[in-house]
Amino acid sequence: MLRRNLMLAAALGATLLSGAAYAADPVSIVYIPKNTGNPYFDSIIKGFEDGCKTLGCDFTTVAPASAEATSQIPFVTAQIQRGVNVVAISPNSPDALNQVFDRARGKGTIILSVNSDMPGNETHRDAAILPVDFTKTGPSQVELLGKQIGYEGEIAILSATTDAPDQNVWIAAMKETLEKDPKYAKMKLVTIAYGDDDPQKSTTETEALLANYPNLKGIISPTTVGVAAAAQVVETAKKADKVKVVGLGTPNQMRRFIENGTVEAFQLWSPYNQGLLAAHFAVGVKDGTIKNEAGTVFEVPGLGKVTVEKDSVIKTQADLTTFDKKNIADFNF
């Protein structure tokens, strides 16, 4: 009994402590990327940092070593304990974090899913900041490749994992575009390969594509690891003029291939702007200046007007950015 009272006192003390911190301090935001050492998320972190510099919020980032489904959970719990106001996270699993998110939100922490959503589990987070209008990724990639191969010939897709939710949405849209739009009638999707976002597997899968489909004209790889591996294989096999590679990649990862002509163009969005937008949104919601509900419009300096859509989804930009020889020198991320 005495022990229980002691525990109660300890817990109470901690609550008081975090409560006091909340009243006095600026909004505190923590961003938890999928894993550490991933350059893509470094850009998002940079966006958060710059956003918080102008807004005056406290920003920290912590990351697990691996992108395994459960690796982020202890970090979220620790942030709740630290009394952080906003946890922004790029979730490693669409559902394994549900319980800990519920608990965080029960304690007043705002949960923002950044860079990808949690399909089917939207009720467990407060809002999702997505990089781009995902319905445009598929058609846009098909057009980028079509332009390079004269809208004709066999093409293949090299994706991440068979169940990667974002990639599967985009691939479905690619298929639909290829089928419905007469412009692409002569482009034939021969297969979809999965490189599991692993450099080695992506490499052997691409090599198998080249071996299995000697008439292949192009590869679309809507994942940063995949597109780099595909480009490397095509370069090694000296088939850059025969097989065009397009996809989603980061400029630093792809610069070499653009400069030596292996890849003509690829696409992405701005992870930096995602971080920036998320920081503004988080502070606004916490301050009460931004209402987290469909239809709210708010302004982010440098990004213009942004709308909160259905299910509290916010898209950072409408169209994808295309990188090629002309503009790649302007980007460093």
Partner: peptide, 17 residues
């Protein structure tokens, strides 16, 4: 290391991982 650590409830919760 951290003022947020000494909280038995939190430690027990974290121990479940």
């Amino acid at each position: 290391l951290s003022p947020f650590f000494a909280d038995l409830g939190f430690i027990l919760e974290s121990s479940t991982y």
